[in-house]
Design a protein around this nucleic acid. Sequence first.
DNA 1: TTGATAGTTCGTATATAATCGAACTATAGG
DNA 2: CCTATAGTTCGATTATATACGAACTATCAA
Lengths: 100, 100
Amino acid sequence: MRNYAHPDLADVTIEHALHALSDPVRLDIVRQLDRAGEASCAALDGGRPKSSMSHHFRVLRSAGLVHTRIAGVQHMNTLRREEVDKRFPGLLDAVLGVEV
Amino acid sequence: MRNYAHPDLADVTIEHALHALSDPVRLDIVRQLDRAGEASCAALDGGRPKSSMSHHFRVLRSAGLVHTRIAGVQHMNTLRREEVDKRFPGLLDAVLGVEV
DNA sequence: TTGATAGTTCGTATATAATCGAACTATAGG
DNA sequence: CCTATAGTTCGATTATATACGAACTATCAA
């Protein structure tokens, strides 16, 4: 694995983004990235198996929500905030702003 | 069927709402209700079987997004706009405002 | 009361998604 | 070169969703 492909936000549908956000594990990841700014996969796993997390990060990347950069042995994730905000204005604000 | 139970929005999670909105058929229903204000099930079916539509309306109701009132032989649906806006501020604006 | 209309419920088939162990790949450090 | 670490990929299992025909229920109108 040299590096990841990240889709152009123009190619991401709102359905795709909503689906990615509708899973509790992934929503938790997104919330943590929103606070933390950048984090490795391991830092966000909450005790779940690596293969499960790998699956969820893949879904988040394919929905254009998360960017993953390889930094040595770690894969560092960030929210694609600006791009997502441009493509889906107000969506992340709404989702992240909810009283839980 | 005398009438429907509609959940209190306080009992609806954001995950549940996002999941309900992530299906293209249901998103289409929500868009149409947003424009039309109120519509029967049949008016929104786009040629799909009644049993399929019944399923999707049930999901939308259980996510607190749609209210259904029985009017004679028809079941009239509306978006629960105000309540959803109070529970998930900005969510419907974001979802309905997207460039398709 | 008969028939038409609108929608539900049930059952089943099929598709999609989540979970996670095991084997694998890549990088860093000793 | 060896080992540990971080994460991926594969494959199998299980869970959850979707799709939709068929039979049913409720209402209205003739």
